[in-house]
Amino acid sequence: MTASTTGAVQTRKRRRRTNARQNLIGWLFVGPFGIVFLALLVLPICYALYLSLYQKTLMAGTTFAGFDNYLKAFDDPSFLKGVWFVIRFSLVLIPIQMIISLAIALILDEVTSRFARFSRLMIFLPYAIPTVIGALMWGFLYSRNFGPIADVFGAFGAAGPDLLSTNMIFYGLLNVVTWQWAGYYMIILYAALQGIDPTLYEAARIDGASRWQIIFRIKIRLLTPALVLILVFALIGTLQFFNEPKIIQQLAAGAIPDDFTPNMYAYQQAFTLANSNYSSTISFALGAVVFICVYVFMLATRKRGNFMS
């Protein structure tokens, strides 16, 4: 916070002197990215918006439709169910993920053995695995005929849950995503914890604070910006859920229909049903939903000092 404000003050001072030069050089630095940004973000978004205003059918071809596609999308059970699913999934997933990664980060901050360092790396490792492959591995592990989960339950004489069935797929996916990302979030939190000045703990201890008080009053409080950051990442990631269900669909087509998540639905519309107009509508509507969700969240947490201040 302080560093950046002094920076800004300094730049303001210099501005008067070398305005034109600053302009030119600043744009030279930002320009290349700006071009990519325009070409690969702004342009596709505008194009999607344009496409979403047209309608394409087998018999009639392409016709102008105005906002009909949007009216259709927000009345389309496939799209709405998909949106509802990803929202529900986020609401369950994100707290679980955050609690797990926070707990691990706190443990690792506490324990400094060689084994702890080893664990830190191992827990992080799934992040390096392509989601496609993570989903594939778990798909196998869920097998009731030859997977280890079935063995564990079998040892107690119980039938294991079928995590690929319609009723359980929610939990099956929950586990895959948690496995993949908890380590990454843990590392962010851990790094933040390591950055906290240890004299704070000493001072608190002298004041008679218990270990739990230190954890809650100091550590977690100071972690708030990092937690907000994670939350935003997780929210963006989950709302656009695609890779994991798309891969696991090959093992559980009954439980994961083509309109399972909004992104899968958009994919189906674009590639299977050749309806790029409606697909754009869904992409655009999804983008809007994500943007609004995140923006509302950012506003709500603004006072707490979030990472974009």
Binding site: L58, T166, N167, A253, G254, P257, D258, D259, T272
Partner: peptide, 20 residues
Amino acid sequence: TPIGQYFYTAFTKQIAAIND
């Protein structure tokens, strides 16, 4: 059917509904 892609997707959903 000339709308095979859609038909199969829709049918998969209904078979899943029977199964659950």
